[in-house]
Simulated assay, not measured.
Amino acid sequence: MKFLIIIPAHNEEDNLSFTLNSLQQQSFKDYKIVVVNDGSTDQTSEIIKKYTDQDSRFETINLQKSAHQPGSKVVNAFKNGLKTQNINEFDIICKFDADIILPENYLEIIEKSFQNNPKNGLIGGLLYIEKNGEWIYEGNSNKHHVRGPMKAYRKECFIEIGGLRETLGWDNIDSILLENLGWKEVVLPELQVKLIKVKGADYTVKESDYYGRYFYFLGLKRFLAYVASSKEAMKSKSIPFFFQIIKSYENCRSKKLELKITKDEQKIINDKRWEALKKKWLRI
C-alpha cells in the first residue's frame, strides 16, 4: 500500500526536522510527503528545502499567511496539499503534524493493520510528551481515539466520510462519521509518537471560548452542549468556567455560524453523544 502524507507547517523551524527525519528513517519506504508551508515567517521553508532537494518523495507548497485558529487553519492547509496530488495513486491518506517524532516502524505497522483488516478505516498510535526528562503518555483523550497529529485513513474511508472538515472539532467528527458508516477506528498502543510542542500554544482563543466554539461546531444540540460544558467545568473545579463556556456556545448559536456538517451528520453526532452519555453517566 502506498502512503500520501500531508504535513501542515506554520513556523515550525524548531520541530519540523525531527518529524521529517523520523519519516526518512521509516522501515516502510513507499510514501510521498507534501509539506504545506502555511504562511511561515521563520526558517521553516529553508528546512523543507533541505529535504525536497535530496529526496524526490518530498514535495512542498507555500500558502499565504492566515489567522491561526484551532481546526480550520490546519485543515485548510491539509486540503491545499491534497489538491496537488492524484488521490487515486495512493491507498492511505495521512494528516500528520509538523512537531511529532514517529517510531521507525510506524508506517510499517500501520500498513500491516490496514492489510489485515479491510474494515480498518482510521489508524494511529498514542501521543507521548516529555516531562522531567521522560516521555509519558499525554492522556488528553481516551486510548481508543486517534488524535489529530497522526491520522492515517484508508483512502476509501477518507472519501466516504467526505474528507476532513474545515472546522473546530474536525478530528472528532471524522471518528463519528466513519464509525457510523461501518469503518473501524484503531489505536495501536505499541506505536508511541512523541509530541514535541504543547498543543494550543499558538492559539489566540481563550479556553472557555475554545470549548464553547468546539461544542457548537461539533454540532451539539443545547442539552448535550451543556452536559459537555459541565464536564469541563468539573475538571477545572470552576462553576464560572461552565457559564463562560455556555456564553461562548450561545454566542455562536445566536450568530448562526455556519456548520461544516450536514443536518444528517449533525444528527449522527448527537445520537452518538447521547448513546455515550446514557452508557457512561446514566448507566442505561
Score class of each variant (00 low, 15 high):
residue 249 Y to Q: 13
residue 209 D to I: 11
residue 284 I to F: 12
residue 139 G to H: 08
residue 23 L to Y: 03
residue 44 T to N: 14
residue 270 N to C: 09
residue 29 K to C: 00
residue 220 L to D: 05
residue 129 I to L: 10
residue 222 R to A: 01
residue 282 L to P: 01
residue 262 T to K: 01
residue 238 S to W: 15
residue 228 A to C: 03
residue 23 L to F: 04
residue 234 M to C: 12
residue 219 G to W: 00
residue 114 F to K: 00
residue 160 E to Y: 07
residue 259 L to D: 11
residue 162 G to C: 11
residue 121 G to A: 12
residue 249 Y to F: 14
residue 237 K to V: 12
residue 199 K to T: 01
residue 59 E to W: 15
residue 265 E to I: 08
residue 272 K to E: 12
residue 143 K to I: 08
residue 84 T to I: 14
residue 283 R to I: 06
residue 45 S to I: 03
residue 220 L to E: 12
residue 41 T to H: 00
residue 54 Q to M: 08
residue 201 A to I: 15
residue 172 N to Y: 15
residue 205 V to W: 06
residue 138 E to C: 02
residue 133 G to E: 04
residue 54 Q to I: 09
residue 178 L to F: 08
residue 277 L to S: 00
residue 244 Q to T: 05
residue 230 S to P: 04
residue 228 A to M: 04
residue 50 K to N: 09
residue 240 P to K: 06
residue 32 K to P: 03
residue 165 R to M: 00
residue 174 D to W: 10
residue 160 E to L: 11
residue 3 F to T: 09
residue 205 V to N: 09
residue 65 K to M: 07
residue 98 A to K: 02
residue 232 E to R: 09
residue 242 F to G: 03
residue 85 Q to T: 13
residue 49 K to T: 10
residue 267 K to I: 09
residue 166 E to T: 12
residue 57 R to F: 08
residue 262 T to S: 10
residue 196 I to Y: 11
residue 183 W to V: 03
residue 30 D to P: 00
residue 253 R to E: 14
residue 55 D to W: 06
residue 283 R to M: 09
residue 237 K to H: 05
residue 74 V to E: 05
residue 264 D to A: 04
residue 45 S to F: 07
residue 73 K to C: 04
residue 147 R to A: 10
residue 100 I to Q: 04
residue 20 L to N: 04
residue 126 L to D: 01
residue 235 K to I: 14
residue 250 E to M: 13
residue 101 I to T: 05
residue 243 F to L: 13
residue 94 C to M: 03
residue 151 K to A: 01
residue 82 L to D: 14
residue 13 E to Y: 05
residue 230 S to A: 13
residue 76 N to C: 05
residue 215 F to E: 07
residue 180 N to L: 02
residue 71 G to S: 11
residue 24 Q to H: 12
residue 14 D to Q: 02
residue 157 C to S: 04
residue 193 V to R: 01
residue 191 L to F: 01
residue 183 W to D: 02
residue 203 Y to R: 04
residue 78 F to W: 14
residue 123 I to G: 02
residue 131 K to E: 13
residue 219 G to M: 02
residue 87 I to H: 15
residue 238 S to I: 15
residue 271 D to L: 08
residue 82 L to P: 12
residue 269 I to F: 08
residue 104 E to N: 05
residue 53 D to S: 06
residue 129 I to W: 06
residue 224 L to E: 06
residue 86 N to I: 05
residue 25 Q to E: 03
residue 167 T to I: 03
residue 40 S to A: 08
residue 101 I to C: 09
residue 155 K to F: 07
residue 34 V to C: 10
residue 174 D to C: 15
residue 107 L to S: 01
residue 180 N to D: 01
residue 253 R to H: 14
residue 145 H to C: 11
residue 230 S to I: 12
residue 93 I to E: 02
residue 112 K to F: 09
residue 128 Y to V: 05
residue 264 D to N: 05
residue 42 D to T: 00
residue 90 F to T: 07
residue 199 K to Y: 01
residue 235 K to S: 06
residue 160 E to K: 14
residue 284 I to P: 00
residue 114 F to N: 06
residue 222 R to W: 06
residue 83 K to F: 12
residue 201 A to T: 12
residue 162 G to N: 13
residue 90 F to A: 01
residue 72 S to Y: 07
residue 173 I to H: 07
residue 39 G to A: 06
residue 256 K to T: 09
residue 29 K to M: 04
